[in-house]
């Protein structure tokens, strides 16, 4: 089927098998490989993206269902050379090791702050529990979010 996906502010016209997930569309058809496939069944969070500003799993989302709805991926977080405060905090706090879960962690972390769930460490831990990290960077992810949250601009648009 023919469809147009709006990713990081840019439209992509694609011809896709209706079975194609948003994750596979991003990775294999648009060439945005930042979003990762860790389980392909909604169990790990590595494919987390923002759909109309809300964090969702790209692996369980059919590309066909997101036509005309803006999607933001990890590639859309930074403004040019300027990293998003969350990206910078992840580097400073060494909040990753292998880096594979990191795009999903970042997308969840940004959403976690925007949702108002980064008020204390326990809330951060709970609201970051949909993103598995096998390297065990959890304490540093919490520290990075705690640090980045006050630097983030209040969110505009839909939550």
């Amino acid at each position: 089927m023919e469809l147009t996906l709006n990713i990081n502010g840019r439209d992509h016209r694609l011809s896709l098998d209706p079975r194609t997930t948003l994750l596979d569309a991003l990775r294999d058809h648009i060439g945005l490989t930042g979003s990762k496939k860790g389980c392909d069944q909604g169990q790990c969070g590595a494919c987390t993206v923002h759909l109309e500003g809300r964090r969702v799993l790209a692996c369980l989302t059919l590309a066909a269902t997101v036509q005309g709805r803006p999607v933001t991926t990890v590639e859309g977080l930074a403004h040019g050379e300027a990293l998003h405060p969350m990206q910078a905090a992840f580097i400073t706090h060494d909040a990753f090791q292998c880096g594979y879960c990191t795009p999903g962690q970042l997308m969840s972390a940004v959403a976690c702050v925007h949702e108002g769930h980064a008020r204390n460490d326990d809330a951060i831990r709970e609201y970051m529990s949909g993103n598995l990290c096998r390297c065990g960077a959890y304490p540093k992810i919490v520290a990075a979010i705690r640090d980045a949250a006050p630097q983030m601009a209040p969110k505009t648009g839909r939550v």
Binding site: T48, R54, V56, L57, T61, S129, G130
Partner: peptide, 9 residues
């Protein structure tokens, strides 16, 4: 239940 992402979906 589930995770924040799944609860959003």
């Amino acid at each position: 239940a589930a995770s924040p992402q799944l609860r959003n979906m």
